[in-house]
Structures are given as C-alpha cells and as structure tokens.
Nucleic acid binder design. Sequence first.
DNA 1: CAACAATATGACAACTGATTCACCTTTCCG
DNA 2: CGGAAAGGTGAATCAGTTGTCATATTGTTG
Lengths: 217, 217
Amino acid sequence: MNTAVNAKQNATAANPGPGAPKTARGARTRARILKAAEDTFGTLGYHRAGISDITRAAGVAQGTFYTYFAGKEEILRELVRDMGHQVRAHLAAEIVDARDRLEAEEKGLRAFLQYLFENPALYRVLQEAQFVDESIYRDYYEAFGKGYLRMLANATRKGEIRAGNNEVRVWALMGMSNFLGLRYALWERDVPFDEIVDTIADLFRNGLTLDGKEKSS
Amino acid sequence: MNTAVNAKQNATAANPGPGAPKTARGARTRARILKAAEDTFGTLGYHRAGISDITRAAGVAQGTFYTYFAGKEEILRELVRDMGHQVRAHLAAEIVDARDRLEAEEKGLRAFLQYLFENPALYRVLQEAQFVDESIYRDYYEAFGKGYLRMLANATRKGEIRAGNNEVRVWALMGMSNFLGLRYALWERDVPFDEIVDTIADLFRNGLTLDGKEKSS
DNA sequence: CAACAATATGACAACTGATTCACCTTTCCG
DNA sequence: CGGAAAGGTGAATCAGTTGTCATATTGTTG
C-alpha cells in the first residue's frame, strides 16, 4: 500500500504537509488540530478515532484538517515526532544534575513514570504508531536509544558501570521502563514510584542473585 | 462501546462463538480459519486484514467464517488465548531442567528470543490486541506474570535470589524480554542470541555498577 | 435410503469513515 | 481602499468492510 515512497511525500519538520501555515492564525489552528489529535488518539485510539472526532475536538471543520495534514497517517507521524522530542527533552532535563549513572537511572525512571502518568496519550499513540508505519516507531526508539547509548558509553569510560554490551543493555533498559510504566503508571498505581525505582536501583547495584561478582563467562 | 457485557457474549474456551463445531470436518475448518487469521494478522496487521483476507487464506467462503466466530474481534481474542498457551507451554518446557533461577532466566530468555524469531506473528497479534480490547492483553500478561512471580518467590525462598519486590521485578523482566525480542529477534538479527543472554545474565549476577553489594537503602 | 442436521457458499445490503471541492470569510499589504 | 492570498467550511463522494441470507452440499442416523 505504501510502496511508492515518492508518491506520498513523507512530511518532515522542514516540509510539514500540504501547506505549512504562513500566518499566525494558521499556525495556531494547526497546533490546535495537533493537540486535538493527541487527545483523540490518546483516548479513542488511532483506528477508532475519526478525522471528524479530531476536527470536532479542535473546533474546526473537516476540510480544515487537510489544509495542514495530508491525512490521518501523516498527523500521526507528526505527533510521534513531537511527543518524542518532548519526552526526551523532559527526561534530559530531569537527569542533568545526577552525580553518576546509577543516580541518573533512578531519576530517569522516576521521571519517566511520572511523565507517563501525566501524559498517558504518549504510550498509546506511540505503540499504535508501530502498526500503522513501523518506521515511525523505530525512529523513535532508535533516537531514544542513541542518546541512551552515549550516556552508557560515558559511564563505562568513567568506570561507573562495568564493561559490557551497552547496546543490548539499552534495549533491555528501555523495555523495563516501558513495561513498568504501562503496569504501574497507566494500569494501576498500586505501588509507589519510589519503591519501583528502589527495586530497579537494587538490581543495577547488586544484580538479582545473592552471590554476585563471579566471573561472567 | 463494549459496555454491555451481556450483549456481546464473550466467548470462552467453553463457549467458543456462535456454534462450536460438532463434526470432525467442522473442527478442521475452524482450525484452518484460526491458523489463517494468525498468518493474516501477523503479516497485514489486525486492521488492514479483512475477513475476506482470512477466509481466502483459509480456502473457505466468507460466510463460513461466521459459522465459527462472531466477528473479527472474537477471533482475535481466541487467537491470543491460543498463542498465549503455546508460548507459556513452550517456555515452561525449556526451563524445567534449569538447576537454579539464573540458569532458568538464561534458558527462558534464549528460548523466548528463538520462539519469537520462529513465530513473529505472536508479537504483532498480541501487541495489536492491546488496542482492540485491553483486557485480552492484560489477561495475557497477568497470566504470564503470575507464573513468573511464583518462580521468583520460590527462588527467593531457596535463597537463589535476594529478597525484594518480585512483582516489580517480574514486570521489569517481561519488559526486557519483550524489547530484546522486538529489536534482536524481529527487527535485526545482528547480535547473536548468546551474547544477549550473556549480557543479561551478567546484569542479573553483578548488576550494572562496578561496586556492587552495598546496602540498597 | 430418506430425512434431518451440520457445513459451506458467495453475492450483496448496509454502513463507515476518509478525502475532495466549490465556495465563503478573514487577513495582509501596496 | 481593493484585490490577492491564506484560511476555513461542510455536504457530497467514494472506496472498502462487515455481517447476512437464501441456497447448495455434505454427513449422520434410524
């Protein structure tokens, strides 16, 4: 369906859809639609949400939607890009003052859980995007993972964490956060974030076994 | 939408849809349709896949579908239940002969990666089910997590792993496997499973930091 | 083997929801 | 001011889907 890479011009930050807004008013309207899409996709889900739901929430007519976005799929793309920037920026800000990697992991996890709780749409929009167009999703995690990897590499250099395959670790860590967020920030808040963070910090410090520090191979 | 719990009779193993097959032929046909749905959802995804795609793959007429399933959503439910049983049974069999928890984790992770590689439809069907009906997904992971938790509790009792919040650990571990599977079994097989397993085993044995075994609080 | 139950067929009615388009309103600027 | 560009409208179109049904085939049983 999406074979013709050139037929359906992939909008980028530089080329956002049919017509980028050229007026303050236009920019405002576009932003309203984007926000409405976030809310609508977040509660109804991508497939159940109709363009009409989005435009109704934004308070504009259906046709207006197409002034700024080529279609449903494109607004999703845009949305994930946007939300991705926001989380990354937020998390980065939360861990700048960490004194070492372990502290950064703790702060990062806590901030992520909190962020997800306050912005539940992020999870749903992102996960659904995976099946609309896998590249949206891969881009998100590869961007995320790249920054994460750099941090782990630094920590290794500084001797804060042991040598090892940091790329594999990054994916393991992202998976952990993801599931912990889903279970404890979105489904049921029956365990305080601090306890979750402590449990994971303990895993990072001491592993799972009692008799740590043996040779690993 | 799915408010009326009684209106849309949720099919269970005991009550599978409109009419359970009463003949060997019927049972075969139903199984063919189920398998076809797995393949079709696995490659096209739940939403892009039409009933007609499923019946075509199964080699039956469209109407036949409704002899055994109430609709698209119900066959998905059935499918996840089925596939869930299969993975759990497979993984359980792979770790029975593990001598301790660490070995069980290693074998379990390796088996999971391998299974996902051989049955990529599992991931997609399961993840998409999440947004069709969240309960399908929650049931799967709660069932999975329950068994996992029991194993960790045993390991704690035997002194194989340190005391801690095993429930949180379970979700962290499931998340890890999930992401590692997605990245290294489904997306790119550019890192051998053994190396992944070793990296995670090292994390379990020694944690992430160099100076393990301090007090955790 | 007759009569009945279970299965299977495939055309199609009914519906959903994305996108288009001809036209109107607001804003900008020489 | 006046006209052009940008923004906005919403009814109509159109493609694609689900689920139904009258009918045909296959299997079962007394």
